[in-house]
Simulated assay, not measured.
Amino acid sequence: MSKYPKQKSVFHAEEWLHYFEENALQRPLILWDHGIVVETQQRRPLLRSLQRFQVGEQGDGRHLLEAVARTQNPEYQAAMALFIKEEQEHSRMLAKIIKGMGGNLLTSHWSDTCFVLLRRLLGLRMELLILLIAEVIAQVYYKALFDGTTDIVLRSVFGQILHDEDGHVAFHCAYLHQTFSKLSPLVRWLISNSWNLLFRLVCGIVIWDHHTALRAVGMTPSICWHECMQAYATARQSCFRPTLKGHSVELANQA
C-alpha cells in the first residue's frame, strides 16, 4: 500500500497528488467470491452500523470540489478529486458487504444529512474540519471492525478503508495546518477550541448510534471514546501545531 507524505511546514499538493495516484494503483485483491460469513451475534448490529457509514461515503463531493477550485491550486484540486474517488470506492465496497450479508442499502440517514449541512455552512477550512471529524472517528471505527471480525472479505475491506482513512486525515491536516498558520494566535485558539467542543459532541452521538456494533466486535463505548479522543488529539496537533519562524515567508506564499 502507498505511504502518504510526512507532514512538513509547507503543504506540497503535488506530493499528495502522487500519493493518491499511487494508492489507486495499489488496491489489494478482495476475495469477494469467497462470500461473507459473519457470526450470528455480529450480523444484525454490523449491518445496521455499516448501512449508516455507507450512506456517508457515497456523496459526489461537488460542493467540496467547488470550494477547492477557489484555491486556484490545480494539484490540490486533482488530489481532492482522487480523495473523493477513494471515499466513493469505500461506499461501493461497503455496499457489496451489506448486500453480501443479506442487507439493504439506505438512501439517506439523519446523521449524514446533518454532516452535509454543517459542512456547507462556511468556507473550505470549516468544511474540512467538519469532514475531519468523520474521518478521525472512522479511523477508530474501522480499526475496531478489523480487529473484531474474522471473515477474510470483511477484514480485507476494513483494512483497506483504515489505510485510506489514515491518509485522508493526514492529507486534510497538512492542508489545514498551512492555512491556519496564517491566522493570528487568538483566531487559531478560537477555532481549535470550537472544533474540540464539536468533535466531542459528534463523537458522543456516533458512539451512541453505533454502540451495539462496537460491542459486537469487542469495543465498549468508553474504550471507543478514549481511542477517538487520542486520534483526535493527534489530528488537532497536526492542524494547529506552531509553525517555525523560518518558514513564515514561504507559507505566506502558498495557496
Rank of each mutant, 00 (worst) to 15 (best):
I98G: 01
E227Q: 13
F146Y: 15
Q42S: 05
I133G: 06
R70I: 12
E57P: 10
H211K: 09
L105E: 11
F180L: 15
L118Q: 10
Q42P: 04
P185Y: 13
I137G: 05
Y142K: 01
K6M: 07
M126R: 11
F53T: 10
I191L: 12
R52N: 09
A24H: 06
D60F: 14
P45Q: 04
P185T: 14
L132R: 04
L64A: 14
F83E: 00
R43L: 01
E127N: 15
T149K: 03
L183F: 14
E39L: 02
E66F: 04
R155P: 08
F240A: 08
Q7H: 08
S156C: 12
T234Y: 13
V202F: 14
M1N: 03
G61Q: 07
Q88L: 10
R52P: 03
P242H: 12
I30G: 00
R188D: 11
W189G: 09
F20W: 06
L251Y: 07
P28E: 01
L47K: 03
E15Y: 01
G148R: 05
F20C: 00
I205G: 04
L82G: 06
S111W: 12
A134I: 09
D166W: 00
L145K: 02
S222K: 08
A138M: 06
L121R: 08
C239T: 12
W208V: 02
H163D: 08
V187P: 00
W208K: 10
A235Q: 04
R241V: 15
A78V: 07
T113H: 05
R241W: 13
V217K: 02
Q139N: 15
L121C: 05
K8L: 07
M93E: 14
A144E: 06
T40L: 02
Q54I: 07
C173L: 08
